[in-house]
Design a protein around this nucleic acid. Structure first.
Lengths: 210, 210
DNA sequence: TAGATTGTTAATCGATTAACAATC
DNA sequence: TAGATTGTTAATCGATTAACAATC
């Protein structure tokens, strides 16, 4: 069985919770603990672990340190993951300067923008023109890009990103881009999320189904 | 059957595609058209429509104008939906000034921040201290909040938001907050999304399962 | 009419959960 | 030992898809 996106999402959450438990002094955890913390069944925790050959001891549970090491390897935390930000408007620059990346083993190595007035190769995180996409991406072995450009620019940019060797795009434009064979795309649409919540909030009488 | 989050997400996407088709001159569409555009089966389109009593004509398909009107009603587009932004740091202010809300029938009526130096009730979109949450939320009948605060502040803020009558929270802090009975929470975690993509990009040999 | 498309029922598929033997 | 917990198999559940009668 191949891991699905949902399973990997849960692995990230196990990892996050395990660090919290570790800081509380936990040496070992049971599938029950993790299930409670994530609001899922202990069986699912065990099943997920089983898929990745993460084993525990009957009655003894799982060793926090051991699972964490395994999870870090699976999620690529043993190497710094370089990413770029394409589109350095308000949203893009807010993301570039977000300081949560480092502690998650990620680094924004550069920004890119079509607007020459935003280009600044001397900045702490340099900003280049789009013509430098391939050069910089190859130099830093970048595989993943955050895309914060206007909706109209998004579709054509995908081709440039692919040519530059980008395999994963986190798209913030309010347009649902479909993954291709050669490129995984995740869409984060604030408008869509709000619209979704607004529906359920406006229909609270209907029991919320999540 | 109650609509799930996924179904509402698809309704949003039908709506988006339908506006595009309308601008291309389409008067009617078939479930095939919509399925193709969204990469889903025509059966699913018909099933979704059926759930909301959106009907078409055998052989004649669906009338674009009619479905759009229905979808707009379902998704609350017939009334302006007021939202607030809690936490006016870089991310929060980038969101407040994002100009995609208006065309989707949403309006950011105010921002809130614990830091008094950010408070500015005279700004185009006024920024208040947290003590004004209830007053302003009630004044503008706000039910949904965008939360862009540091992780450490997030949990306690939920209580304040609930007291202010907020029923839905779009959380940007990198902490997976669980929905409660009285409050729907959607988490948007850039780090989690990146981590997820990084996994699949680093394991491209394993066929991607989406 | 013949062909195409809806609306719905039944079948399939995949993901979650229950159950339980193994065993610490 | 008795009780608790893992690891896995079988059962369940829900969502998607196939099939098809109705009909335009």
């Amino acid at each position: 069985m191949k891991p699905t996106e949902e399973i990997i999402r849960r692995l990230s959450n196990y990892r996050r919770v395990l660090y919290k438990l570790k800081s509380l002094g936990f040496i070992k955890v049971f599938s029950d603990n993790l299930g409670d913390a994530l609001g899922i069944s202990p069986t699912q925790v065990r099943k997920d672990f089983s898929l990745f050959k993460i084993t525990g001891k009957k009655k003894g549970g799982y060793e926090v340190e051991v699972i964490l090491e395994r999870l870090n390897t699976i999620l690529g935390k043993d190497v710094i993951q370089n990413v770029i930000v394409v589109g350095c408007g308000k949203m893009g620059s807010a993301l570039m300067n977000y300081n949560g990346f480092a502690s998650e083993g990620m680094r924004v190595v550069a920004g890119f923008d079509a607007d020459p007035s935003l280009v600044d190769p001397e900045a702490r995180i340099p900003i280049y023109g789009l013509e430098d996409l391939s050069k910089i991406s190859q130099q830093f072995d970048v595989k993943v890009a955050i895309m914060t450009v206007p909706e109209s620019r998004a579709p054509q940019l995908i081709d440039s990103l692919n040519e530059a060797g980008i395999k994963g795009i986190l798209n913030f434009a309010p347009i649902e881009l479909k993954s291709r064979n050669d490129c995984l795309i995740h869409n984060i649409s604030i408008l869509l999320e709000l619209e979704n919540m607004i529906y359920f909030v406006n229909n609270l009488d209907d029991k919320i189904v999540i």
